[in-house]
């Protein structure tokens, strides 16, 4: 196989078509005028307009964004500090903690989901008034976001020569000034990229949310799942298209930022 043969290019092109086929289908059908079935009956933007009146969808969207924002905020805070600490400090059992950090990354969603469900139902027995809902979902999301943020930040710091911080100390900056003027600016692109990744993960998560949600805390993925189970209505296509758009924008932003910081260094 050569890098530039037309055969390779053709193969790659087909794979890209394959990758985008399911997304394209959803986008195309969101403009289909047909009420039922998959037959093409003309172009319309009606389904998008109808979304405005769909209270369930609006509520789910608000829940999703609230959940993603809150959990991302806390996970970036905790995860960045962890990533920084792990890249610049040595401590006992660091290797073990390193492996612990990878557990949430590789663990099957469903296992994590039932573990948390079990944990929260035990808590419910002890704590009066503790119910499944937005709070439990937020706690769950922060848990799987922290490692991703920490890993991205740590990778970023690993690319930065520790001698930079020594140089800062050498030039008269104490620990706080070194952190403020050297470490933080170096870490920031990592924290932002990690945060965007965490945000996308929260936005996309269905399994963990599904198991830790309660009454009134339906998110968009849960809404879509139940619609798929019941049978799709065209306005779900429109909703899905909007979600795809937001996700794609986030990914492109991350890629653009990464490209920019790479050029800078």
């Amino acid at each position: 196989m050569s890098r530039r043969s037309p055969l390779t290019a053709l193969g790659a092109l087909l794979v890209f078509v394959f990758l985008y086929a399911p997304i394209a289908v959803v986008i195309v059908y969101s403009f289909n005028a047909a009420r039922y079935g998959t037959e093409w009956q003309g172009f319309t933007v009606d389904w998008y307009l109808r979304l405005i009146d769909n209270d369930a969808a609006i509520a789910a969207a608000i829940n999703t964004i609230e959940l993603a924002c809150t959990s991302t905020f806390f996970s970036v805070l905790l995860g960045s500090v962890l990533g920084y600490g792990m890249s610049r400090y040595e401590f006992p059992f660091k290797r073990i903690f390193h492996h612990v950090l990878h557990v949430p990354v590789f663990i099957p969603d469903i296992v994590m989901a039932v573990a948390l469900l079990l944990f929260f139902s035990v808590l419910r027995k002890w704590l009066a008034g503790f119910e499944l809902g937005m709070i439990t979902m937020t706690l769950a999301h922060i848990t799987f976001q922290i490692p991703f943020v920490a890993i991205v930040v740590r990778a970023r710091m690993a690319d930065c020569d520790p001698q930079l911080e020594e140089a800062a100390a050498d030039l008269g900056a104490g620990p706080w000034l070194t952190f403020r003027h050297v470490t933080l600016p170096l870490m920031l692109p990592g924290a932002v990229a990690g945060g965007l990744l965490a945000f996308t993960l929260s936005l996309d998560d269905f399994v963990v949310s599904f198991f830790t949600s309660g009454a009134g805390s339906t998110t968009l993925p849960i809404l879509i799942y139940s619609s798929v189970k019941r049978g799709i209505t065209p306005d779900i296509n429109a909703l899905a298209t909007l979600i795809v758009l937001v996700s794609a924008l986030t990914v492109v932003t991350v890629a653009w930022m990464r490209g920019r910081t790479e050029v800078k260094n």
């Binding site: 399911p22 997304i23 996309d204 879509i224 799709i232 979600i243 795809v244």
Partner: peptide
């Protein structure tokens, strides 16, 4: 980065 559910049901439709 796109929701797995959406892609999955895209395949369903397809």
């Amino acid at each position: 980065g796109t929701n797995l559910l959406i892609r999955t049901y895209g395949w369903q439709t397809l």
